[in-house]
Every structure is written in C-alpha cells, then in structure tokens.
Design a protein around this nucleic acid. Structure first.
Lengths: 168, 168
DNA sequence: CAGAATATGTCAGTGTTGTTGACATTCCAA
DNA sequence: TTGGAATGTCAACAACACTGACATATTCTG
C-alpha cells in the first residue's frame, strides 16, 4: 500500500511512484476514450453501439466462431450478446450457420455488408492507432504492448496470445 | 487505407502493419478490461458503477472542482454526471458547497468516507498497474505513456497535460 | 435407450449510464 | 434593470449490461 520508497535499489524505481501510477491510470482513461471515439461516431449514425462493434470485430477476426466462443472472448452474458447478434443477423451483417460436426453450434460469419462495415470501423480505428504508433516509434510501441499485456487478466492474456498467433 | 508497404524507408516500418495495428487494438481492449476489473468488483458490492469511480477519482484529484469542470474532463452530459453526484452526495461521500465568488457554482470535495472509498478503489487499481509497470520495466512504461498520449483526442491531451503537471 | 450435459435462444425484470428537454437560480453586461 | 449566458437540477427515455428462469435441440454417457 502507498508509496514505494524513493531510491530503493539505487536503480531508480521512481516510475513506480503513486503519482506515476496515477498518471498511468489517467492515461489509460483518456486514451481509451480516444481509442473508441472514431468507431463510436460511425456506429451511432447506424444505430449501433460498442457492443456491436466488438462482435463484428471478433467475428471478422475468427470467422466461423461459435456463440460460446465469442461469449468467452467478450466476457458478457449470452443474453447480452444475443441481443446484439440478433440485430446484426436481422440487418444482414452476420450469418448464422448450423455446425457440421455438432449441430447444436452456430457458426458466425460476416456477410459482405458486414465485412464492409467492419472495414469502415477498423479503418477509422486503425488510422488513429497508426498515427499514434508512427509518432511514438517502434520502441515505444513495444513498451506499450508489453505494459498492456501485463495489465490483462490471466485468462484474457491467453485469449490475446491465441489471437496474436500467426502475427509474428 | 490498408497495408503500409513492407520495407519502406529501409528502416523497418513493420510495426505499422495492419496486423500489428490489430494486435494493438485488441491489446487495448483486453487491457482496459483488466484495468477496470478490480475497481468494478469493489464498486459492484457497494451498488456503484464506473461513473461513480470516475467522479470520485477526479474530485480527489482536483478538490473543490466545479460540476462544469468535471463535465469537461469526464466528457459526459451534466445530467448524467448529476445523477451520479446526487447519489454520492446523498450517501455522504461527496460534499457540495456553494461558490464564494460565483454562487452558481458548486465546489465538490470528498468527505472522509469518500476519501476512504477513493483509496480503496485506487489502491486496487494501482496494485495492478504497479505490477504491470514493474514487470514491464521503465523503458516499456515510457513507451506505454508515449503511445497512449498520442492516442488521445487533442482536447483530452490538454486535460491530461494539465493534470500531469506537478508530477515531474 | 434414459438421462445428464452442452449449446443456443428467449422472456421478464432490474440497474447503470448515457441521452434530450424543461426549468430554476445566479451572474453580468448593455 | 432587464435580458442573455452560465450553472446546476429534475424528469423521462434509450442502450446495454446483468440475473434468473426456462425452452429446444443435440450430443454424450452409463
């Protein structure tokens, strides 16, 4: 609890000061707002919310994923997800096909319209991310990712690692 | 739009690949969940939500701030903030004093009970942040902050810079 | 095969947090 | 002093999360 003492091991731990941590906390808060701002604007126009964006993103990322899978990644209740999926399916952005092997499962895909919206959203989000990455430079980006990974919950880190595969 | 070409200036821009950006986006998503998880648990027990946390945090940060001030920082409508403030005031966590100079303004302070809750919440959040910072190391933390700052909206970066003052 | 377990979907109810609209109070400047 | 701007409050509504209960179809297990 409280302040890690100054000049601890000699090797400066000043970056672990309560004040520094507070700055980090506020940085997360303000940055996350920026992070979602652009897609939020686009979604609002179409009558969707952030929940729709998340569903679309991860269906795009893992085509053919099941409802249960998505549930685990998004960390919401199935009722909540179902409401979102229903509207996306009704609006023809997502398709829902019965599983081959296990016919209880529904496999989710984006339709062409869905892919179009996905691209619009992620272009907006990527543009900001790219600008931030570019201005910060590769070393900063590496640090950014290291800290974020360390901040995740254990099980989410696993999800993240899985998703990250094939990337590098 | 799309993929920045490989080997552009010779000096590797591979970290600006769409794939790398996607990983960054998902890192933000999962990390933010971790970031809010601990306080969320505490808040849920007490019947509060994230909005209460934000209000408490920034009142603690800037004692005597006005409703309007808080509005600008939090980026919500005053009606939304007001509902939250009302419950906090009713519950005796926040005090509300009429301004000396301008009697339209209300100056907000945390009561002793409010400070106690604030400490509980920020201790939880800081513990995670500290663990992440420590395991990532100072250079990574510097990069983390650089990227987050670059990701903020212009006006929020201004808020952030103001708040950051006196820190370094 | 019978029954348990799994995967999905639905209905009803509740709470938080955001929105808009209406309005009271206070201040300031023409 | 009066009208407009600023500040804050109240009421009603929408989005989206939650819990709990339950229906249906399918698969697995003893």
């Amino acid at each position: 609890m409280g302040q890690p003492n100054q000049s601890q091991t000699g090797q400066s731990l000043l970056f672990l000061t309560d004040e520094q941590l507070r700055v980090g906390i506020e940085a997360m808060f303000f940055a996350y707002r920026g992070f979602t701002a652009d897609p939020d604007r686009i979604l609002a126009e179409k009558g969707y919310g952030r929940a729709h964006h998340r569903a679309i993103h991860f269906i795009h990322r893992s085509p053919g994923t099941t409802v249960n899978n998505l549930l685990a990644i998004l960390g919401v209740t199935k009722q909540s997800l179902n409401r979102v999926l229903r509207t996306l399916i009704e609006d023809g952005l997502v398709s829902n096909t019965v599983g081959q092997k296990d016919r209880r499962e529904r496999h989710l895909h984006l339709t062409e319209a869905g892919e179009t919206l996905e691209r619009t959203l992620s272009d907006a989000q990527r543009a900001r991310m790219r600008a931030a990455f570019r201005s910060a430079g590769p070393e900063a980006v590496a640090g950014f990712r290291t800290v974020l990974e360390a901040m995740m919950d254990e099980d989410m880190r696993r999800n993240y690692a899985t998703l990250k595969e094939g990337t590098e």
